Amino acid sequence: MRVIQRFSALAAMDGDGVNISRVSDFEQLRFDPFLMIDEIKSNDEQDFIGGFPPHPHRGVETFTYIRKGGFEHRDQMGNVKPIRAGDVQWMSTGRGVVHSEMPLADANDGLHGFQIWLNMPAKDKMRPPIYQDSTQCIKPQQSNEHGATLTALAGHWGFNHSLEFIDGPIQGLAGEGAIAELTLNEHGYGTLNLERYHTAFVYIYQGEIHYVDEQGLRETSGEGQLLLLDAVELCHFQAEACGAGLLIFAGNPINELIVQMGPFVMNTQAEIDQAVRDYQQGLFGQIE
């Protein structure tokens, strides 16, 4: 596989003092339609106990995947859901959502999860919000004989030249976005064909993978690194001795300039200013 660029997650803090690792690009939009990947990974509840009290969003889609522990989600649409290990959740916030995400009281073994942001096309930014989750779904998987297992989280996926495709429990992400998890055992490997997409990248949350760069040199990347890929090239993922866990992202660029301020992602500064006024005037609603 051809790696175009490599990024490293940076330590950040959000919500009520939640420690996260973040890769984002709101300016050059190199991950378009994706904007940001936040990872929470800690066995110390002090890193996440404050959670994310009520806050707004407009013009952005949020996709949450929990691997360990969980959050309780509440929003002004009346959704109250525990999102636990193995669950995914998607909000296409459109003209406005107010929600909170607070650690579950019975999730006392630490927390490991991700929140991914996607841009929305300008034509959809003021539509009514949409909420979906996978709490009642079984996420489809495909495994091969080489120690690799692909779990579809969103979108449409094929694995290892299989003629059978699997669909994630969430469909309809902006930019035809698709998200999957790939786990590799010791020296495991698997192959994905992503040529139908213009954007493809992988985020490594565990272990290491190796690949050959454009100069023919062998490179290794590990936890907290994001590899932007050439989607035209066949993507071959090979783990080292410690195995690996990856999130794989694919989609098609929206190709629109954006303006971002905190939880709002719009196309002009005037639209950002309007979002702030609307929220301050209570037009987003409130959590009951």
Rank of each mutant, 00 (worst) to 15 (best):
H99G: 09
F63Q: 04
T135M: 11
M102I: 15
Q142L: 13
Y65T: 00
H99Q: 09
G69S: 04
K125T: 08
P82D: 14
K123E: 15
T135C: 12
S134W: 10
V60P: 03
K123F: 13
M91K: 10
K123Q: 13
L111M: 15
W90M: 10
G96A: 08
M77Y: 12
L111N: 02
V98F: 06
G70Q: 07
F114G: 05
R58V: 07
G59H: 07
L153A: 08
T93V: 05
S100W: 07
M120P: 06
N79M: 09
G113V: 04
R67Q: 15
P103N: 10
I83K: 01
M102D: 08
V98Y: 06
T151R: 01
T135Y: 12
G94K: 01
V60E: 03
G78I: 01
E145V: 14
L104F: 03
A148T: 03
P128T: 06
A85Q: 03
A85P: 09
L153W: 03
P53E: 02
N108S: 14
G70D: 02
E101R: 00
A154I: 01
C137V: 13
N108H: 13
R127F: 13
D75W: 03
H99V: 03
H57N: 03
G110V: 08
E72P: 06
G96W: 06
L150R: 00
Q115T: 12
P56F: 02
R84N: 10
P82H: 05
G70I: 03
I66Y: 06
N119T: 11
L150T: 02
I130T: 14
A154W: 01
L153F: 00
K81F: 11
P140R: 04
T135Q: 08
I138Q: 14
F52P: 02
Q115R: 01
P54A: 04
